[in-house]
């Protein structure tokens, strides 16, 4: 009986382990090994840290990473600021049909691919696009306005793409907050602001943290949105990785970039958790 149970357990676990090792672990080990190779001649490679040295000594790469990270943090913050009231409304104020309708509304952008979504924004924001024409028509501008190809456009695209990933964890945690706890906050003399600060936000902290981590990582790892909406100055770190792998045939440097991205983004997440006094366990719990 026990042996059978054990076998069953192993059988259940096998796909997960296979998945983890084949698709996560082995590729990463392999990529790490690739990142340690240095091209010394045609088809010849040595083991060295040259690729990491390149990353750390070339200000351009560091600067690109920094810019990507800062933009991602800002995108995360904006997403949070917009998503929080929306989630609060969905979780605590809207009831029944309206609630599910609003939730669905957040989901709709994900019925089309990221490419189509980004094209949608391009159609809206470009110089000959809808918004520009609308401004002209309304007399608010006397010549076409280019709203594409700048950091604000990237930000709009990132926030739009990330919204759902912030709303879902927020709605879930906010729904678990008993209405009477909020009422107690008011009953005992709290104002809207103090109830928000002392009761609602601390309660929603795990949702805020997990939403922020997901959105930050998604923004950092996004490729299409920043490159398409950012235009000539997009300068996104994944773009560097892509061009090393695909355009330059330089897998070694690309792999090193990939690892730096993994390492530095983990570091940033860890730092943020430390600053806000959260732990990953609390977030998962």
């Amino acid at each position: 009986m026990r042996a059978e149970a054990k076998l069953g357990f192993i059988l259940l676990l096998t796909p997960l382990l296979l998945w983890l090792t084949l698709l996560i672990f082995i590729p990463h080990v392999d990529m790490f090994l690739v990142s340690l190779r240095e091209r010394v001649g045609v088809g010849k490679h040595d083991t060295s840290l040259a690729n990491y040295r390149t990353f750390l000594t070339e200000p351009l790469y560091l600067w690109t990473f920094l810019r990507t990270a800062v933009m991602s943090v800002v995108a995360t913050a904006i997403t949070l600021i917009i998503a929080f009231p929306v989630s609060y409304y969905i979780a605590k104020i809207a009831k029944g049909r309206l609630q599910s309708a609003l939730f669905l509304l957040c989901l709709i952008p994900f019925y089309v691919s990221e490419l189509v979504r980004t094209f949608g924004w391009m159609i809206l924001l470009r110089e000959t696009g809808l918004v520009s024409n609308l401004l002209l028509w309304a007399g608010l501008a006397d010549q076409p306005v280019e709203m594409l190809y700048n950091d604000a456009a990237i930000m709009v695209g990132l926030v739009y793409t990330s919204m759902l990933f912030m709303v879902v964890p927020l709605v879930t945690t906010l729904e678990s907050l008993d209405d009477s706890v909020i009422e107690a906050g008011y009953d005992l003399g709290g104002t809207g602001f103090s109830v928000l600060r002392e009761i609602v936000i601390p309660h929603a902290a795990p949702g805020i943290v997990s939403g922020c981590i997901v959105v930050f990582m998604l923004s950092l790892g996004n490729y299409l949105t920043p490159t398409m909406l950012g235009g000539k100055d997009s300068l996104w770190f994944t773009e560097l990785i892509y061009s090393q792998f695909i355009v330059r045939f330089n897998w070694e440097l690309g792999a090193a970039f990939g690892f730096m991205l993994l390492f530095l983004s983990s570091l940033i997440v860890w730092g943020m958790l430390k600053i806000t006094g959260q732990t990953l366990e609390k977030t998962m719990g």
Binding site: L22, L23, I26, P27, H28, D30, M31, V34, G221, Y223, T238, I241, Y242, F245, I246, G254, A255, G258, L261, L262
Partner: peptide, 10 residues
């Protein structure tokens, strides 16, 4: 991490 591929798995 999207662009990271490896010869082995591929």
């Amino acid at each position: 991490m999207k662009t990271s591929t490896t010869r082995f798995t591929l």
